[in-house]
Amino acid sequence: MKRGFIILSVITACLLAYAGYQALVVAPTERTMGDVQRIFYYHVPSAWTAFLLFFINFVASVQFLASAKPSRQAVAKWIVIAIAIIGVIAAFLPAVQEQLKSTGMRPSALATTVLMLPVFYFLIGKWFPGQRLDMLAVTAAEVGVVFCTVVLVTGPIWARPVWGIWWATGDIRLTSTLVLWLIYVSYLVLRRFSNSAQTQMLAAALAVFGALDVPLVYFSIWFFRTQHPQPVIGGGGSIDPRMLHILLINWVSFLCFAFLVCWARFRLELLRRQVEDEYAMESLGEAASTGARASLPLKRNAS
């Protein structure tokens, strides 16, 4: 375990250095935006990583809520399977394909994305039983907030020279990312301020509320015209294949980095809870032994 961590750290450091070199030196300069565009190699991978982590948090929270009751677990399982089946079938319906054409997404891409949901759900449920689900949720939320912060900071730095404004209020992607960030910050605040055994249940419920909220935010701003550049991957936009290559290298290295941080954080949480449990057991044992001593004179009095 320890050796694996060190090996992965070295690999991640090499990858990040190589990706940084590729992004800053090798990548072709964009024609209209110039060097500012290079922030794209950090902005987009951070965004993808953050969304992936928030998604993991959501899945782990649903699993955690479901694991409280066997009946609920069965219902959740069938709902997830039903969503996957309906999603895959819907992706190949002519009506949906018409809609997809305008966004430039391929039906197979949509079907794969929908299929990811049950795969994630069952794998996470299998690998992280019981309390570990909650630890995974808190790890993913914390690291996700960090990556989301990177997105929200690099965005305006890029936007200022290109759009001429730091922040476009009412833009769909900006606002939904900001709201997502706010929701997860409130999630972390909730976890910080409630240290009881109920925290895990409350936090999992809040995560589900947050996940329900994000599509509504997206929908609510949907009919304002959006200023954010359309997604270049699968969005019908064109991108230099070299740029795409470097972007993907950056994403892989960011994913490795996120995985590394999550690993460390998860391990910390695991150890922290073990220590807490041992403390609790110790004080219970102490209380039992002092209680036994205290009861001795009482017994004498009684006799």
Binding site: V179, I183, S186, L190, G210, V217, F219
Partner: peptide, 9 residues
């Protein structure tokens, strides 16, 4: 702190 972020939409 919990209510406002969720209530944004």
């Amino acid at each position: 702190l919990l209510l406002f972020p969720i209530s944004i939409p």
